[in-house]
Amino acid sequence: MHTKWSLRDVIFLALIGVFFGFIFWAWAFAYNAIAALLTPMGLSPYANDLTLGPWVMAGPMAGYLLRKAGASIIGETLAGTAEMIFGSQWGIMNVVYGLMQGLGAELGFALFGYKKWQPISLTASVILTTVVTFIWDLFQSGYANYSFGLLVGLFVTRLISIALFGGVLVYYVQKLVDKSGILNQTKVTVS
C-alpha cells in the first residue's frame, strides 16, 4: 500500500466518479417515480433509502481499485463534486453527501488497516456507510422527528439497498476486475 497520489490516480478516480454518477443518473427518475407513488401515504422518505445504494458505489469501488488510505473518501467526494458540476439539483450538498458516504466506506476499510480487500471489509464498509449516512440524515433530512417504527423501517431499507449495490454489485465488479488482471499489470510510469 502506498499513499502518494499520482496524477493518473486522481484522473482515474475522478473518471470513475463521473462514470458511476452518470450511469446512475437514470436512477433519479426511478427515485422520483417511487417518491411520487409513496407520497400520498406519507412514506416518501422510503424512496430516499431505497435508492441510496447506487450513489454510494463509487467509494468502495475506488477503495478497492486503488487500495490506498483515503481513496474511498476522495473518490466519493470527487464523484459528488463531478455530479454538482454536471448540474445536479442538489448543488453544493452533493459534495457534503459525497464526503459522508465516502467516510462510511473509508471507515470500513480502515477498520482492517487497509490490508484486507475481501468480503469481510466490504461488509464492514456497507454497515458503516449505512450508519454514517443515516446519522447524517437524522439531521439533514429531519429523520430525527420521525416515529421510531418508521425509522427502523428506513434503516433496514437503507441497509438492504446499500448492501445490494455498495456490497454485492461492487463485489461482482471486483471479481471481474480481478479476473482481468488489469490491476496487477506493471503500471506505465512517466515521470
Binding site: L38, N145, L150
Partner: peptide, 13 residues
C-alpha cells in the same frame, strides 16, 4: 409534497 405528507403523518412532535 413528500416532506409535507411524511412529516404531518409520521412525525413524533
Amino acid at each position: 409534497l413528500g416532506a409535507w405528507t411524511s412529516f404531518t403523518m409520521h412525525s413524533t412532535t
